[in-house]
Write a protein that binds this DNA or RNA. Structure first.
Lengths: 211, 211
DNA sequence: CACCTGAAGTTACTATGGGTAATTAACGAG
DNA sequence: CTCGTTAATTACCCATAGTAACTTCAGGTG
């Protein structure tokens, strides 16, 4: 009833609407973005994100930034979740082949849970997001590289390989994720086991490890 | 002279122009696409490809298909080049750690030579191209998996890991490529050497292999 | 040779989405 | 009370993927 006289809804002119401040920060927008991407797939639009967050496009740009930056922020979250899951999976255990399998499987499970988000974040074709893709990887590789280096050093092995290995392993995990996501792969746990074989003993090593 | 009265050039109406058939097939368009991508970066447009090929957009769609299909076709070519380079690098040699290094280095070199093409082909965020990305990988993994399986079987080792390994290795190579492309990585040959260490002996194996 | 008919092109258009400009309301300072 | 600054909205621009409408060529048929 408020002011029905002032034309309830038809043809609003531009301008800030009545009502107090918006209480929506970047985090809330990212939450909305995840919901939209989950629902609309990796092609979800910024506009849709704004609507889901109950705001308008320019606010998204003000709070989060361009699409590339949005993808970046979401990549941060996803990487954090993966690192987290990995840490929990390894909690306390010594580093061994068994814990390596768990590490890989935990990563695959996280991606399976966030299928579309993974595709959104690893997709993107402009130069901006191409480097963004690398950025996503870096967020995962940095802690991994640190862990590897520490472990290798403690074991008296060459530790200069850590960074290369970290990128390689993350790439391996991303491709495995894509494969698993798309069905067409065997059971994720089997895949994790195979990859653990490869990473742990190498191509030349240890025959007969079927399971 | 023809019909100068009918306005020589301004405001051509739509329609097929005079002159014989176009002699431009899909291959020629893909060649043009590679040139444009090389020059304009991974964000190159279909229109630009058409212009470079000396034709118009609908012809591109008629001969090659949508953007996703274009990327797919280019992925085929790139994968073929990589497989080719790898075969040449390994020609005749027995499979060994040294030849593994060569295999990796050869792949990195191909990507470095076609930086933008690689980004174009591995980019893309719609669901279509996401599965396309997997398709690209498959083109590389299929021969690799076959080779691995054969080799493992001959060596009396478990060969059911071949497919998982192939995807994992291709993922590792793609991420390494991205890293190398973006500068910020050490010398490609060093990276190849590190990854060969990982793949050959595994994380647990052989201390002290520095170079 | 006149005349259809389908294939092969072109220009022109639509639709969508990223990103920004123009515009207006709220709010705090003088 | 007024006024400038800030925060929000609607409306717009522009690029690009993809398609429709339209026009010419080629070849067969009377």
């Amino acid at each position: 009833m408020k002011q029905t006289d002032a034309v309830t809804s038809i043809a609003r002119r531009p301008g800030r609407p009545p009502g107090g401040h918006l209480a929506i920060d970047a985090e809330a927008i990212l939450d909305a973005a995840e919901r939209v991407i989950e629902h609309d797939g990796p092609g979800a639009s910024i506009e849709a994100v704004a609507v889901e967050a109950g705001i308008t496009k320019p606010i998204v740009y003000a709070r989060v930034g361009s699409r590339a930056e949005l993808a970046n922020a979401l990549a941060d979250r996803l990487a954090a979740r993966m690192v987290d899951a990995a840490r929990r999976a390894l909690a306390g255990q010594a580093f061994s082949r068994a814990s390596l399998t768990e590490f890989i499987a935990a990563n695959l499970r996280v991606v399976l849970t966030h299928r579309n988000l993974f595709l959104y974040v690893t997709g993107g074709s402009t130069e901006q997001t191409a480097l963004g893709r690398l950025g996503l990887a870096e967020r995962s590789t940095t802690p991994l590289a640190a862990g590897l280096e520490q472990w290798r050093r403690a074991a008296g092995l060459d530790s200069t390989v850590a960074e290369s290995w970290a990128f390689g392993i993350v790439g391996m995990l991303q491709m495995a994720s894509l494969w698993v996501i798309d069905e067409s792969s065997p059971d994720p746990d089997r895949v994790a086991d195979h990859l653990a074989d490869l990473l742990w003993w190498g191509m030349a090593g240890e025959p007969g490890r079927t399971t």
